[in-house]
Amino acid sequence: MVDLAEATLVRRARAGQLEAMRQLYERHASRVYTVVRRLAGDDDLAADLAQDAWTNAFQRIRDFRGESAFGTWVHRVAVNTALTRLRQAARRRDLERGFDGATTLGNPDRWPAAGAAERVTVQRALDLLPDGYRSVLWLHDVEGYTHEEIGARLGIAVGTSKSQLSKARARLRALVTQSRAGVRS
């Protein structure tokens, strides 16, 4: 069903009306921020990514044809913006191979350890994963992307995506188990 109020807001936002853009933002701010925060693993970076995502969305709003809901479209823009930025950041740090798990980030012995007394929630454990692992895990298990789609977006092979996913799941499980055992003891 077409949301007429939202369609009006989109039309006005296309015409450059800031108030319409603000209302669209208010409607979908949480959804967009949540997905970039999960991918970023960090509050400050997430805020930057959300800002970039919304700026991109409003700059490209003429490309939005209304074939999907605006929320779906802006969510996709946010995911693409976040992945692009994360890949650029990885390149800048010369860690692009982190997406393959071939650097030190892929070595479990070099990962940051959670303190024994710290209750590592699933969210915190997700934050502790290397960028590449976290991206693959979130895109596959929550966003529902296939390994082919993930490979295309992250610039990695399908097999690498599968391998990253299994390692990410195992690492997440270890972090949470270790933490919960620490809390119980």
Binding site: R22, Y25, T34, D43, A47, A50, Q51, F58
Partner: peptide
């Protein structure tokens, strides 16, 4: 879902 930072819209608006 998480709440976006309170100043986020101001930051976005500044670039529009």
């Amino acid at each position: 879902d998480l709440g976006a930072p309170e100043d986020l819209w101001m930051r976005i608006e500044a670039g529009l």
